[in-house]
Computed example of a mutant assay.
Amino acid sequence: MNSRRTFLQHLTVSAGILPFAIGSSAYIQPESEYIPEVQDGPVLKVALMGLGSYADRVAKAMQDCKRAKITGLISGTPDKLESWGAKYDVPEGSRYNYENFDAIKDNPEIDAVYIITPNAQHHGQCLRVAAAGKHVICEKPMSINAQEGKEMVEACEKAGVKLLIGYRMHFEANTLNAVRKRQNGDLGEVKFFQGLSGFIIGDPTQWRLDKDLAGGGAMMDIGIYAINGARYMVGEEPIWVTAQEVKTDPVKFKEGVDETITFQLGFPSGVIASCLSTYSMNYLDKFFLLGDKGFVEMQPSTGYGPIKAWSHDGDITKPHVTHQTTQMDQMAAIIYDGKKPEIPVDGEEGLKDMKIIDAIFLAVKSGQKVNLNLG
């Protein structure tokens, strides 16, 4: 089954031939200078919920983690529980299905649950995990609308547990380097951002094309990268959005399942972000941030890596480290050490993206500019 994740993986292979290097005089620092340090501390014991293709990627990456370990499994497929349990040394007593996973409450070998299930299931599963007293790590988008996201934040706050969203790019070296260049004034005054996110989706029967499971189409899958990227690259919160939808295949993309949406975000400083989210075009994984003194460009910008980045003064690509390995180690530090990430990954961060997605769908429907209040 094709997915954004398969596409992004393939995209990085072809990206090696892109003309990303502008000049060759940029100083290349030793690899050790870019890899985020992981302080010694307690190991986060994690149960993976939803044992699909992305969970497989996360599980493999976690084998290299210093502070996160797989200690539990939750799935509706008994065969997966058995095979994954054997592969990752998870005892039968820490394997659960979707009916009985509330029993994790009494399992001291589970500190957190990483929810990697279809979007529409995140809300209910998050509330149950929080009620069991375990920290929640939830894949993006955190829910199918802002109301559900708000309830997830409130449930975790009430239970006294952390809610973190799987924004792996917030820990990625090239992304952080690009953001720092803007913060340091290397680009001057920011003027414009472009975010392109898309691929041609395959199997028409997959859950990502089922509105009841996905909550939409491309926007709820690949489009959130452009939304979230616009926010951390520009360094402001948008105050309005306009959007237009194009649908060329109403059979594959049924009512409520978007094929292609172009959208524009306006920021308080006057910066405009022009973005595209699509399930019908390949080779779209690009960020471009322009200032009055320079620019930063990334392509691929959100794939599994290696990410490629360059600016007006040369190649700024950092060495590749598996994103999910860094993500899980850093999330352990957030939960146990109170570490504050450079770019937030908490529930409030996820909720802001959901408010923007709600507004994009409203702008498509109404044809009008929709004001945003992300406070």
Rank of each mutant, 00 (worst) to 15 (best):
P91H: 08
K150A: 04
N107E: 05
E99V: 02
R128Q: 06
V58A: 02
I116F: 06
E99K: 02
A86F: 12
P78R: 01
I74G: 00
N100R: 01
K162R: 14
W84Q: 09
A146G: 03
D106S: 04
A86S: 06
A86Q: 09
G76H: 04
G93S: 13
N119D: 08
I144S: 05
M62E: 04
A86W: 07
L73I: 12
Y96M: 07
R67G: 10
A68Y: 15
K80D: 00
G85R: 03
P141Y: 01
K162H: 12
Q63P: 06
E92K: 15
K158R: 05
L81N: 01
K162S: 13
G149S: 00
Q121M: 11
I144Q: 09
V136T: 15
A130H: 09
I137Q: 10
L127T: 14
Q147D: 02
I104W: 05
P118Q: 10
M152G: 07
T71H: 13
H122N: 13
I104E: 05
I115C: 14
I70D: 07
Q121E: 14
D79H: 07
D106L: 10
G72E: 14
V113W: 14
N97F: 00
A132Q: 12
P91I: 13
E82H: 06
K87Y: 10
D64R: 14
N107M: 14
M62G: 09
A155G: 10
K150R: 03
G76N: 02
V90D: 11
S75A: 03
A59K: 01
A159C: 05
C138D: 10
N107V: 02
E92M: 12
G93P: 12
V129R: 08
H122R: 07
Q125E: 14
D89S: 15
I110A: 08
T71E: 06
G133S: 06
F101M: 15
K66S: 04
Y98Q: 04
P91W: 11
K134P: 09
E99S: 12
K162P: 06
M142Q: 09
P78C: 02
Q147P: 00
L73C: 05
T117K: 15
D64M: 04
C156A: 11
R67H: 15
M62C: 13
E154S: 08
F101Y: 02
D102H: 00
E92Y: 13
Y88H: 15
Y98V: 03
G85W: 02
V153Q: 05
P141G: 03
N107R: 06
M142H: 05
C126L: 07
G72T: 13
A112M: 04
I115V: 15
K140C: 02
I110V: 05
R95F: 14
T71I: 01
P141F: 03
D102C: 06
E92G: 11
M152K: 10
K140F: 04
K66I: 00
I137V: 10
D89R: 12
A112I: 13
E151I: 02
A130D: 13
S94Y: 15
A103V: 02
V129M: 05
A86R: 01
E139S: 10
K158L: 06
V90L: 13
I110W: 08
L81A: 00
K162L: 11
